[in-house]
Design a protein around this nucleic acid. Structure first.
Length: 928
DNA sequence: GTACTCACG
DNA sequence: GACGTACGTGAGTACG
């Protein structure tokens, strides 16, 4: 029902709330990182108190918090001194401003602001609209500038004094009715806003004059009749200034707003969203109060440690490293850890697969330069020095005792465990019953700050930030066939290496953690990197069941087909050669058969990529056969053969490993095996997904974001037509085609739509005429024409691209909507590299924001589905795959979809909906 | 170890 | 005006 009679709109003056909160509270900071949060805390308390007071019959049906945005408004154009005497915003308040928006959204209250407008004008316009619709309005503010709006169902409420201000209240304050308030203010001026008014005239005198003459215009016209000479002269001399003052204090009641009253309908807060925000802010009391009220378990608020400000330079010295061989020695270290509240941890194992490798030893560091290694399962050197002995080496601590002693420390919520790539160590330790928490991860701390600048492995970080080359592992393990595992490394070599790793990790933490805040990526790290570690660990541990039989049968079939093709190819070539060798193939095609095609510069080899062969295949059989052979070869070697080798013999499942800090954009990467590139596009390849199956009685459930990157682009670039199309659930590619080629939607042909689709994707990649031409296989000029027409139709996209590259040039990085920074060091390069960097800069905020969204969804997922018989198994960039009890599919789908579709909230309120498609089946192919 | 090719979003 | 170009990944194979 549209807003109207019987409805009651509450409008909260957000800035007033913020300033009141700021001044009312001591300068609180977030414990984990020193982020100032006092005003946010006060703001949340006030919002909560406000919501609590709203359960009576007078409760609002609609409500919004309105904020100021931008320092320049139309009033500055009228009068450049407007608000010029305001003090600059306190430094510790500035970073809290966006957080108050987040807070508002977390409470699920509409949050509105408009660039270049004061909150007062938005409030005025909304009040006016509501009044005209026949509804009531309460403005929660005590700002006298808003009093002109009172009357006709509009009242104000001073929330602090719990005092309602109606027409009488305004008259008591100004001596005139609300309709004459601007006249009085124009005369009296306002020192706070620097409105000049008439010198020497205050509210009392102004009211007297207005009451006598009726209104300001009449007063100024008849100023000559005023008896008091000084007052008369002032009004005559300053008539223009007074009129200007009236323009400054008069609120704009007829703004065009991008939302309607109906959008402001009161909504219940979502417990999970709200609590997530409050605990992220580390508001312990508020979190508890809200969780008690809502009857929901409170999320744990970590008790984090912070490193010392600046560590003095301590040289690396292996002599300061200790080998811990018994419980007494370990107890000394544990006491140190408990005393300090943090510890750097590193595990040494027999391999890189954390699902299978054995734990060999643990190293710890509490203080820079001092570290220990606890050897646990090193093998004794062999007597004949040929095959190692299976006996354990002397002088090691008892394995079970060590685990038993470390467990309480590593699980102690008051002790921070610092690691480099902690997911690995945590997974190893988990296998021995230890749940490592809370954690910090130097790899992720670096990633949040330096994505796009360099890698985040320990060697890179140590070189860059500690100016130290770590002891290499290669000489210890050897390489190739003679390589040994870490348990065969002698203790005297293993200990300095292992202890140094813990020492380096601790030093890196000291060097990098304090910089998170100055780089303004603390929130990125704490909401999108660190919390992902346990989630991914869980997914990797779960693995996915892969049916070996299916793969093996497919391998055989592929092998047969390939043999046939190979014979044909050799026949056509007139000689035998290695079809898998691009070099040999190129020579056959271009030298022997004399087909037209060119060399590629770098190595002088012929290019024989699929695009080249496809062109040749229209006329010749051989390249066509080679294409078929290559497809089969790829499927067999990379998938049907290799996947079988990845089936874990203990679990019968395939356990991928996700790298969190691999892709600069924030995407995850999947390795060993890569489960993010399992075929789907070709019919033949898609069948491989049939081998990914659910356990008996369960199904695989796949949910994927629909068009998430295009939606994000529409939001970021602010393309109204695209946003509208997404809101209405239209076919976005068809719509683009229709707009571009002037074809009505009902006459759309698949080919025109296909071209538009290619353009839409091109836009996300930083489109070029060449690239589009190649993709669509059309002349370059034609492709360029498409692009020109596209930009003409959607100029906002062109602006986005220009703005983004300009931003990258100025700052050296670009950002996602959630604040993730992606550095673009090559943006100012010359030559073709500049082109690469530019396109990457255009793509990164879009791809990165999509990556942030699904990360946020994944982080919330374990709690969201904790009570359901469902396990999250895989992430494929815009898709999540679950294994679910068959009868619970609908419930899980509903729950997961809810989380995914709202994953941006409350941090970012997207102006396009995110929608999620779902499918399920007994295997991954059927789940799509 | 590097280049090429190709699987995915 | 020429130069090369769609964005982000991982893995298998050939080859030096």
């Amino acid at each position: 029902m549209a807003f109207g009679k019987g409805h009651h709109l509450h409008l909260i003056d957000g800035s007033a709330f913020i300033f009141r909160a700021y001044h009312a509270l001591p300068p609180l900071t977030r414990k984990s990182d020193g982020l100032p949060v006092g005003a946010v805390s006060g703001f949340c308390n006030m919002l909560l108190r406000y919501i609590d007071g709203n359960d009576g019959p007078d409760a609002p049906t609609h409500a919004a918090v309105i904020f100021d945005k931008g320092s320049h408004t139309f009033r500055n154009d009228l009068y450049d001194q407007y608000k010029a005497n305001r003090d600059a915003m306190p430094e510790d308040l500035r970073p809290q401003i966006p957080l108050t928006r987040d807070a508002t959204r977390a409470f699920n209250v509409a949050c509105e602001e408009l660039e270049g407008f004061e909150a007062d004008d938005i409030i005025a316009t909304l009040s006016c609209q509501a009044r005209e619709a026949g509804g009531r309005v309460t403005i929660i503010s005590s700002d006298k500038d808003l009093m002109q709006l009172v009357g006709g169902g509009v009242e104000m409420l001073d929330a602090m004094k719990n005092l309602r201000i109606d027409v009488e209240g305004v008259e008591a304050k100004f001596g005139v009715g609300p309709d004459r308030v601007v006249d009085v203010q124009a005369l009296a001026g306002d020192s706070v806003d620097n409105v000049p008014g008439a010198p020497g005239i205050g509210i009392k005198t102004a009211a007297l004059l207005i009451n006598e003459y009726g209104d300001l215009d009449t007063l100024l016209e008849r100023a000559g009749e005023i008896k008091q000479p000084k007052r008369r002269q002032t009004l005559i001399d300053h008539a223009d200034q007074i009129r200007l003052s009236r323009e400054l204090v008069r609120l704009d009641t007829s703004m065009t707003l991008p939302f309607t009253l109906d959008d402001l309908e009161v909504r219940d807060p979502d417990a999970e969203t709200l609590l997530a925000f409050l605990s992220e802010m580390e508001f312990r009391t508020l979190t508890k109060r809200v969780s008690d009220r809502m009857g929901v378990a409170a999320p744990a608020v970590p008790e984090p440690a912070a490193p010392q400000v600046e560590a003095e330079v301590v040289p690396f010295d292996p002599d300061k490293y200790e080998v811990v061989r018994d419980a007494a020695a370990l107890q000394v270290w544990i006491d140190r850890i408990v005393d300090r509240g943090w510890v750097a941890v590193d595990t040494e194992t027999t391999g890189l697969d954390d699902m299978r490798a054995d734990l060999v030893g643990v190293s710890l560091a509490v203080e820079i330069g001092r570290a220990c290694y606890i050897p646990l399962r090193h093998k004794a050197a062999d007597r004949d020095d040929l095959f190692g002995s299976d006996d354990l080496a002397e002088g090691q601590m008892d394995f079970d005792t060590c685990i038993e002693m470390l467990k309480p420390v590593l699980e102690d919520p008051s002790i921070l465990k610092i690691g480099q790539n902690m997911k690995y160590d945590a997974k190893i330790l988990w296998r021995f019953g230890i749940n490592v928490a809370p954690i910090d991860d130097t790899m992720l701390i670096s990633y949040a700050q330096h994505a796009g600048l360099h890698g985040h492995g320990m060697d890179t970080l140590s070189e860059r930030y500690l100016d130290h080359t770590p002891i290499p592992i290669k000489p210890l393990l050897g390489s190739g066939k003679s390589a040994i595992t870490f348990d065969r490394v002698s203790l005297d070599k293993a200990a300095p290496y292992a202890a140094e790793d813990a020492d380096i990790t601790l030093r890196l933490w000291h060097a990098l953690k304090p910089r998170l805040h100055t780089a303004k990526v603390t929130t990125v790290y704490e909401t999108m990197e660190r919390p992902l570690v346990p989630v991914l660990a869980g997914m990797e541990r779960a693995g996915i069941k892969v049916d070996r039989q299916t793969l093996s049968r497919m391998s055989s079939a592929f092998a047969q087909k390939m043999a046939g093709l190979e014979a044909e190819i050799h026949e056509l070539a007139g000689e035998t050669f290695n079809v898998g060798s691009p070099k040999q193939l190129g020579e056959i095609l271009f030298d022997k058969m004399g087909l037209t095609g060119g060399k590629k510069g770098k190595t002088g080899a012929y290019a024989t990529g699929a695009d080249v062969l496809e062109d040749l295949a229209t006329e010749y059989d051989l390249p066509a056969r080679v294409l078929d052979w290559r497809q089969l070869s790829k499927l067999k070697s990379t998938y049907t053969d290799a996947l079988q080798d990845h089936i874990n013999p203990d679990t019968g499942r395939v356990h991928t490993s996700y790298s969190i800090a691999g892709a600069a954009t924030g995407r995850l990467a999947s390795t060993d095996p890569n489960l993010q590139n399992i075929p789907i596009r070709s019919e033949e390849g898609r069948r491989i997904r049939q081998a990914f199956v659910a356990e008996e009685g369960k199904v695989l459930l796949a949910l994927d974001y629909s068009q998430i990157e295009l939606r994000i682009l529409a939001h970021i670039a602010g393309i109204e037509e695209l946003k509208q199309a997404f809101r209405e659930g239209q076919d976005i590619h068809a719509l683009t085609a229709s707009e571009m080629f002037n074809v009505p939607l009902d006459e759309m042909t698949p080919d025109v739509r296909r071209q538009a689709k290619a353009i839409n994707f091109g836009v996300i990649y930083g489109i070029s005429g060449f690239g589009l031409a190649r993709n669509l296989r059309i002349p370059r000029a034609e492709a360029q024409g498409f692009i020109d027409r596209y930009f003409e139709r959607f100029p906002g996209i062109k602006d986005y691209m220009a703005d983004t590259t300009a931003f990258a040039k100025e700052h050296g990085f670009v950002q996602t909507l959630f604040g993730r920074k992606i550095h673009t060091p090559e943006i100012s390069a010359s030559g073709p590299r500049a082109g690469f960097a530019k396109r990457a800069a255009i793509n990164a905020p879009i791809q990165g924001t999509a990556a942030d969204v699904i990360r946020r969804a994944m982080i919330r997922m374990p709690d969201a589905i904790a009570d359901l018989p469902a396990t999250m198994l895989l992430q494929v960039h815009d898709e999540l795959l679950f294994e679910v009890d068959a009868e619970a599919v609908d419930t899980v789908t509903q729950r997961v979809r809810e989380i995914m579709e709202n994953a941006s909230m409350p941090a970012v309120n997207l102006t396009v909906p995110l929608t999620v498609d779902a499918g399920s089946g007994s295997n991954w192919s059927d789940a799509h």
